Amino acid sequence: MSLKSIALGLLAGVAVLVAPSVRADDEQAGMTAEQFIQSLDFRHGTITVGQAKAHFNLDDQFLYLDQADARRVLEDMWGNPPDESVLGLIVPRSPALTDDDSWAVVVTYSDDGYVSDEDASKIDYSELLQTMQEEIRDGNPERVKAGYGSLDLVGWAVPPRYDAGSKKMYWARELAFNDQDHHTLNYDIRVLGRGGYLSLNAVAGMNSLDTVRAGMERLLPMTEFDAGARYADHNPSTDKIAAYGVASLIGGGLAAKAGLFAKLGLVLAKFWKLLLVGLVLLGGGLKKVFGGKDKPTVR
């Protein structure tokens, strides 16, 4: 099965099948892949994310696109619907954005408030996985009836781990859409701060697990909140407190709001943001659309 077929199967599990092509507006019509990539403002080094009061100290393995260019890639290049919650995109220098095995990390921020980590040491991740699997399976008849296809959580691709010292949690899930043989990797990082948490999310094929895992582990220590916005800066008498704890972050906060993956609408809303990056698997199709390779410019 081709990577394009895998990606089409992936998108069958969500709401809309979107073609990965540049929008036909005057500015971008007729662009080659190289022209489009060259038009992006890739940054490196210390990156400030003002909306989240956070920053990245990127090494020479990563590049960064600010909100506007990140959305151009996600929406114009990969065909995703508009999403104002996207703050940026972290892109490995290799593979290139238009390569078949490319991947990228979507940066978002939740301002739900200070997330207590008091329950972190008590989480039974095996039990949590089983609960999530059951909830997803129970919701499949409704998803299929609604035309979204089936979704199954195969298991942990990387078991959840919470570092109490750095206030960072990471995990990866192996997902199957419509009983396809080729499964999808969903790799997440959550960084806790004073007023909420920073989310870093990457999606790829399971065959890219080693590459994505190495990249995300490398990225983990490069992500920090600014002074005054760190978890340790929390003021219990004035700060907003999130209505859920660390365990709920693995479900994107769904556990606290609607039951773990229980309601179709919320499932799609959450997974839509998490999984649309899977369109990157259509890189081979992009080459046909744009007709060229990319060599990012960096400033």
Rank of each mutant, 00 (worst) to 15 (best):
G149D: 07
S94F: 00
G252Q: 11
G253S: 06
L175H: 04
R143F: 08
S166E: 10
A120N: 08
G253A: 02
A262C: 02
G278W: 07
Y170W: 01
D188F: 15
R190G: 04
Y170S: 06
E135I: 04
Y125F: 12
D111F: 02
L286F: 09
L175K: 04
T48A: 14
K53F: 08
N235V: 09
E142C: 01
A54H: 03
D152F: 11
R71G: 02
E75R: 07
G215I: 11
M77Q: 03
D25A: 02
G228A: 04
M77K: 00
I189A: 05
A104S: 09
E84P: 09
A242V: 04
V154R: 09
A29L: 15
L260H: 00
R194T: 01
A7S: 15
G149M: 02
E118V: 01
G265L: 10
L266Q: 15
P82A: 07
I37N: 08
A104Y: 09
L219P: 05
Y109C: 00
K257T: 11
S21T: 15
I136V: 15
V212H: 11
E217I: 03
T108E: 14
D188M: 14
L8T: 14
D119A: 06
I136L: 10
V73E: 01
G165P: 04
A247F: 00
R72S: 07
D138S: 14
Y162Q: 00
P296V: 00
N178V: 09
N178T: 12
V158D: 12
T131W: 00
K287N: 06
G113W: 01
P221Q: 08
D25M: 03
N207H: 11
A15T: 14
D100C: 02
I37A: 11
G253P: 07
Q180Y: 11
D226L: 11
Q130S: 15
D152W: 11
S102F: 13
Y114H: 15
F177Q: 06
G13T: 09
G284K: 11
D179Q: 15
S85H: 12
M1S: 14
D111R: 05
R173N: 13
G292K: 00
K273N: 10
I250N: 02
T131E: 13
M206G: 03
D25L: 03
P221N: 04
K4F: 15
S110N: 13
L264F: 07
Y197P: 01
H55C: 05
A202Y: 05
Y197F: 15
S39Y: 08
K122W: 08
A70Q: 08
L63G: 01
M1L: 12
N201M: 09
M77I: 04
K273M: 07
L254V: 04
L219A: 06
L10N: 11
E224Y: 03
G215E: 08
Y231D: 08
T297E: 13
G205I: 07
V22M: 07
T184M: 09
F62Q: 02
V144M: 12
H183D: 01
S5G: 01
A54Q: 06
V289Q: 11
W171Q: 08
F261H: 12
D179K: 14
K240L: 14
D210P: 00
A33C: 15
V280D: 09
V73G: 00
Y162M: 03
S121C: 04
